[in-house]
């Protein structure tokens, strides 16, 4: 089995609003794949489809060879035990200490003795470099540290697939590179596969193996980081080099500017 995740012709409609349109994507085992695009282009929806949280309106999502929409509730839960997900702002349980947060999936799913859980938690916290804060509450940590703790929690059960939902949002540059470094290292040492959803192009390109570009619910470009850097595609070019205007207009469509400011009489 070469590809851990295969997304085939997937469309998804929320109520009547189409969010994803005929998406095709493969995530090979052991690789770090990133999905880039502007906010609201359906990246998070795509992650939820992969996790079996949402069911595609058309097409299918295969994880380790099995179509998620054919799985029962229990089978989806079984599948998710082999997945870890890092949420945008960590989503740590605020009423538990750092230690209990990381221990949470272990206690819920393994039934291991408390002494062994302690060792495992310490190992996971060590992997993200935060063994020293295990007694603290999440509120006492900085945003970057919270996210690293959340990452330790996400890898507590040694997942096959780790998904990152905007892991770099609102981080200072040092936390930023720390997280990026950890993502790459965890992927290689755990032998896992990673999907990183982000819009931070420059910082993400060095750590990933393959890039998908999404816009308005469709894949518009893909390739290795080098392909992307050298891409002539106007959209990718605009995105990578952060140009204000291009195929993606800076202005959200609206009434003509002069009219809005009442510089000329309205029609009629």
């Amino acid at each position: 089995m070469e590809n851990l995740v295969e997304v085939k012709d997937v469309s998804f409609t929320y109520d009547v609003r189409p969010v994803l349109q005929r998406i095709n994507m493969t995530v090979p085992r052991g690789k770090v794949v990133t999905i880039m695009g502007l906010s609201g282009c359906g990246k998070t929806t795509l992650l939820r489809l992969i996790a079996g949280w949402l069911k595609p309106t058309a097409g299918e999502v295969r994880v380790a060879g099995r179509a998620t929409h054919e799985l029962t509730h229990d089978e989806i839960y079984e599948m998710r035990r082999k997945m870890g997900m890092l949420f945008q702002f960590g989503a740590l349980f605020t009423d538990m200490s750092v230690f209990d947060n990381v221990a949470f999936p272990l206690r819920e799913h393994t039934g291991l003795p408390e002494s062994m859980i302690r060792d495992l938690v310490m190992m996971k916290l060590h992997a993200v470099g935060l063994r020293g804060v295990h007694r603290r509450m999440p509120a006492e940590l900085s945003g970057g540290m919270q996210r690293r703790v959340a990452l330790a929690r996400a890898i507590a059960l040694d997942p096959l697939l780790i998904m990152y939902d905007e892991p770099f949002t609102a981080l200072d540059p040092i936390s930023f590179s720390a997280i990026g470094h950890v993502i790459r290292r965890l992927n290689d040492t755990l032998g896992a596969t990673s999907i990183v959803v982000t819009h931070d192009v420059q910082e993400t390109l060095p750590i990933v193996d393959y890039v998908y570009f999404m816009s308005d619910g469709a894949v518009v470009a893909q390739g290795t980081p080098d392909d992307i850097r050298n891409s002539r595609e106007p959209f990718v070019h605009q995105f990578v080099w952060g140009e204000i205007d291009g195929p993606m207009a800076f202005h959200y469509p609206g009434a003509p500017y002069r009219e809005e400011l009442r510089l000329e009489p309205a029609h009629g």
């Binding site: 998710r80 035990r81 949420f87 945008q88 989503a91 349980f93 999936p105 819920e108 959340a150």
Partner: peptide
């Protein structure tokens, strides 16, 4: 703060 979602994702 997505804690409920995180729990769901951890198969809890």
């Amino acid at each position: 703060t997505e804690q409920i979602a995180a729990m769901e994702m951890m198969a809890v």
